[in-house]
Amino acid sequence: MNTTSMQSASLWAYLQLMRPANILTAWADILLGYAAAGQVSQIQAVLAGTVSIVELVPLGWLLLATTGLYAGAVVFNDVFDAELDAEERPERPIPSGRASRQGATILGSVLLLGGIAAAAQVSLISALLAIAITIAALLYDSAGKHQDQFGPINMGLCRGGNLLLGISAAPELLSDRWFLALIPIVYIIAVTAISRGEVQGGKRETGIAALVLAGAVISAILLLGFLPVYHLLAAVPFVLLFAGLILPAFIKATQDPSPKTIQNAVKSGVLSLIVMDAAVAAGFAGWLYGAMLLVLLPLSMLLARLFAVT
């Protein structure tokens, strides 16, 4: 293999560590938070030509911030798991030797610091949320994921914090819309809990618990219809799609908790985050905005064919 080929292979390995397909799910969180903060009118005004595209700069910074935070966090996940992956998943970039642990540590650090710096361009509150997400992510990567009860909650807090980061586009609304973070927190608890069986297989009881939590998430989205600013009819088609994507996969993983079945359930669960975010966002900003957000799903699925999701 010549030098150019070796460099290309190395770059590809580091890109694999960042899990590009998953990053789009983090974008969906930001776009949902942006809608919940009542900022979609800015996008409409830009499209109508009544205001400058400069008005969307804060959204751009938040999307850049979540890219760095998410990518940095999953890179550190592989850094902390290097020894374990050498036994259970030797094909991964670090144990296979295609990426070095030191190089991954540098990459992850740059991404996390870059994410915090990007968030700071929006507001101090955004920067503080980015720091909190970074701490929660590193805590999960290093220790939280090994805790049966705290681990899923820890991971859920990372995703809930990401949604709040999107709402921080209008910081004054954080005190009114903070409860929306509970939806991704509960959902990620379900996905993280069921993911425990990816390598050696899971337990039927875990699958049942994940199904109950998924049902609670669907119910919570529907209950948002009681909010004066939420239009449930616009959200219903997206809720049905969300249920159709996750429930069959979770049921199958409950009936057959083998590693392969659970991996498929987790993959469906992660990618369906986009649909869940679209469902909630549609209620705040209309079905067209929800559909725009949903476009991220086929893009994420395409990337999932090239890069690992779990």
Rank of each mutant, 00 (worst) to 15 (best):
G197Y: 01
R177T: 11
F179R: 09
A193E: 11
R196K: 15
I189T: 07
F179Q: 14
Y187G: 08
G201N: 06
P184F: 02
D176S: 15
L182G: 07
S195E: 11
I189C: 14
A190V: 06
G197T: 05
A193G: 14
V186K: 07
A169T: 08
I185W: 06
A169C: 12
L182E: 04
V186T: 11
P184V: 04
V191Y: 06
R196M: 11
I194G: 00
L173T: 12
G202I: 05
A170C: 08
Q200E: 13
R196P: 00
A181M: 10
Q200N: 14
L174R: 12
Q200I: 10
I188R: 09
G201F: 11
I194F: 03
A169Q: 02
T192H: 06
P184S: 08
Y187A: 00
E172K: 13
V186W: 03
L173H: 13
Y187D: 02
G197V: 08
G197D: 01
P171W: 09
D176L: 12
Y187I: 02
A169Y: 02
P171Y: 01
E198R: 09
S195D: 06
V191G: 06
P171A: 05
I188K: 01
F179C: 09
I185C: 07
I185S: 00
G197R: 01
I189M: 15
Y187L: 08
G202E: 00
V191E: 03
A170I: 07
V199S: 14
P171S: 13
F179E: 10
P171D: 07
L173Q: 12
I185H: 08
V199D: 02
G201D: 09
R196W: 03
G197S: 11
L173M: 09
W178V: 09
A193W: 05
I188T: 08
G197F: 03
R177K: 14
F179Y: 14
Q200R: 14
E198V: 12
T192Q: 13
Y187F: 13
F179T: 11
V199G: 00
I189D: 04
R177V: 10
S195P: 08
Y187N: 06
D176Y: 10
A170P: 01
P184A: 08
Q200S: 15
I183M: 03
G202Y: 04
V191K: 02
L182H: 07
D176M: 12
S195R: 06
Y187V: 00
G201R: 04
S195K: 05
L173A: 09
A169F: 03
E198G: 09
F179K: 10
I194N: 05
L174K: 04
V186A: 05
I183H: 02
R196L: 04
V186D: 07
Y187T: 02
T192W: 01
I185N: 03
G197A: 13
W178D: 14
I183A: 07
I194E: 01
A181C: 13
S175H: 14
A181P: 00
L174V: 06
V191H: 02
E172N: 10
S195L: 04
I188V: 15
L180C: 05
I183V: 13
P171K: 11
I183N: 05
P184R: 01
L182F: 13
L180D: 05
I188C: 03
V199H: 10
